[in-house]
Design a protein around this nucleic acid. Structure first.
Lengths: 241, 241
DNA sequence: TCTTGTTTGTGTATTATTAACACAATTATA
DNA sequence: TATAATTGTGTTAATAATACACAAACAAGA
């Protein structure tokens, strides 16, 4: 059910289309800034959820592949393109949407905040540290939690966190990011050993600059892991190690 | 409804289109028999797929929670109740269904074939060894492959395979089952050690009977892992180990 | 230019996990 | 009572994960 329909129209159309179900996608857009894992939210435009934030989502169009819908939402609402996206789960409780029956498929997305910060000056959009988020509109808190859980599992196995960082980064930055996502502290030496063993990184032969301490070496992720629009089968091949 | 659409006229005229997508569930019903992982299929009733088999599925009803739909499908089509079910992925290519736009959410299910064999004498239903399946109607082969992959990951972490076995089983039966699902051979001593370490089993203090060799001890899975209709949060607690 | 603060870069010893591997005991059957 | 088939069990080696300390690099300020 479109969020923009007012209550009277909703009554009418839900009766007309009682036997219909709408399907949407919702995007959990993760970013990383100031050692915090953040998520991009928009102020809910529904009366029922006044004051609450919600995920970015939209109904799927009848002529649109479901996998294209989250890309379109990101582009339309934030201007972001070429982002990492992954389907997580489909939520379809009867009462999850106050204006009608809407089943939604959740995707999470990983973006480099700094390269996307000016993409939209829509001040209804805001990056929130995930640790600060207590409640969201609809069942979006549950969707967020499910996506965080999936993200935590995934980063231990596959080279995806680099989508949250600038092209060049130090091992310290990378470790801080892992700690922010996992919510734990990691031993520096063991972390470096484990990451290096995975063989995901390329040494740039450059050093950090303008840091008030001994600068660290800079790395980037190998190019084969950088294409963000891989098909599922291409991923299987690449990530087989 | 996209925010970019402004006028009421546009909203109204496109409204019908947005509800012009059907949503279904498809069930990959796994069973285990004769050392084969099998899947329950039905003859496709579509002309386009004449001669091909397909998964059991149905459209979701407007008054039905998405999680209830696969239970209903299983009950209606096979008589099975109280089965293990898990949502896997939602498939929504434009061309996946020849008669219109249908997005489908795939679930896999684990059942004990012997206790369900007479549930339906619908001879359009048939158990197929998964290793024999080359092609299926719709995109069901892709759905099946996705579910097998998920099943393989899951059985290494969580005590779910027992849903495929009778209540009492020997470690040999259990190992054969793991080998059938994973498609590999396992070392018997290491397998037994690993399973016992997980602490999922209870020794029944009974022995196999009517086997033409030294009989093995019988085990059952602990009761806390046996409830097949656990909520997601209950699972988290129980399986935290 | 010397001292201090801060962070990088590195290795080893310990423990836990996984993998490889062989033989005696039990039952049914001939 | 001999044979065939399978169960039940333990040790060693290899690999991975964890715990832990110190010297070197740079910036800033005395």
């Amino acid at each position: 059910m479109p969020q923009s329909l007012k209550t009277a129209e909703i009554e009418k159309s839900t009766h007309q289309d009682y036997f219909n179900i709408a399907i949407s996608v919702d995007c959990v857009i993760f970013g990383y800034e100031n050692k915090d894992l953040k998520v991009l939210l928009i102020r809910s435009d529904l009366e029922e959820f006044e004051g609450l934030w919600s995920l970015l989502g939209d109904l799927i169009r009848p002529d649109e592949d479901i996998e294209d819908a989250p890309y379109r939402v990101l582009k339309e609402r934030t201007g972001m393109t070429n982002v990492y996206l992954e389907q997580v789960y489909t939520f379809g409780s009867l009462d999850r949407h106050p204006s009608g029956r809407v089943i939604t498929t959740a995707y999470f997305s990983l973006v480099d905040i700094l390269h996307h910060q000016t993409a939209s000056n829509n001040n209804e959009l805001h990056w929130h540290p995930v640790s600060d988020i207590k409640d969201l509109a609809f069942d979006h808190k549950k969707i967020l939690d499910t996506c965080i859980e999936r993200l935590r599992e995934k980063i231990m196995e596959q080279p995806i966190v680099f989508n949250l960082l600038p092209d060049k980064f130090s091992l310290r930055q990378l470790q801080d990011l892992y700690e922010a996502i996992l919510g734990v502290e990691l031993d520096r030496r063991n972390f470096r050993k484990r990451i290096m063993l995975k063989n995901w990184l390329v040494d740039m032969n450059e050093m950090e600059e303008d840091v008030p301490h001994r600068p660290g070496k800079l790395y980037k992720v190998k190019n084969i892991y950088k294409n963000k629009t891989l098909t599922a089968t291409a991923k299987e091949i690449l990530f087989a190690d």
